[in-house]
Amino acid sequence: MTEEEDERQFVERLRRRDEAAFNRFVREHQDRVYRLVVRMLGDRDEALDVTQDVFVSVFKSIDTFRGESRLSTWLYRVAVNHCRNRIKYMDRRGRGASTRFEDGRDGATGATGAGVRAGGFGRPDEAAEAGQLQRIVREAMDELDEEHRTLLVLRDVEDLSYEEIGAITGLVEGTVKSRLHRARAALLRRVRQRMGEEGSDDE
């Protein structure tokens, strides 16, 4: 039996609201969805809440899955949509940057900054520089709009292909590339502003 056939039959079970199948589906995907949502929202409590909502939505709306993409891609799309809505909601309530990763870890420690070189910024202590840059990048990420943040997370963190990102966001591949470029440029501009480098003209 092919993988496609397997998935088709599994989707049929989900459509019949087969609870055992849904349990399996949640167990197989909850980690990945939770990780994506944490990265999108930056708040673990919110991420847990959204992750649950994502699977509840899947259970309710599995009939709308037309099988034009992988089930996991469709799940990602549902998750991204939930994240976008939650980001807008959090922004309206004035949350976001201040609640990102509340575990007290400070990027200035630079403990895991190995491999990161901030050579363009001309600071003497590269380790501290890398840690500081990570903290600044994290803050700059929070300031991005939800579309830019989504593209950056999907491409640069989740390491998805342009094709997969297109399937998740509903954008054609060329649009994904151009918008990702704009997202990266926007991130760079905000980082430079935070580092006191005026004249952010890197786009």
Binding site: D31, T112, Q134, D156
Partner: peptide, 26 residues
């Protein structure tokens, strides 16, 4: 500069990766 920011973002995401993956939402 461009590369450093993106690499830092990736490193930051890895660093902030939740370790409580055993959390079961089921």
């Amino acid at each position: 500069r461009y590369r450093a920011v993106i690499v830092a973002m990736r490193a930051q995401a890895r660093r902030d990766e939740p370790t409580d993956f055993e959390v079961d939402v089921l």
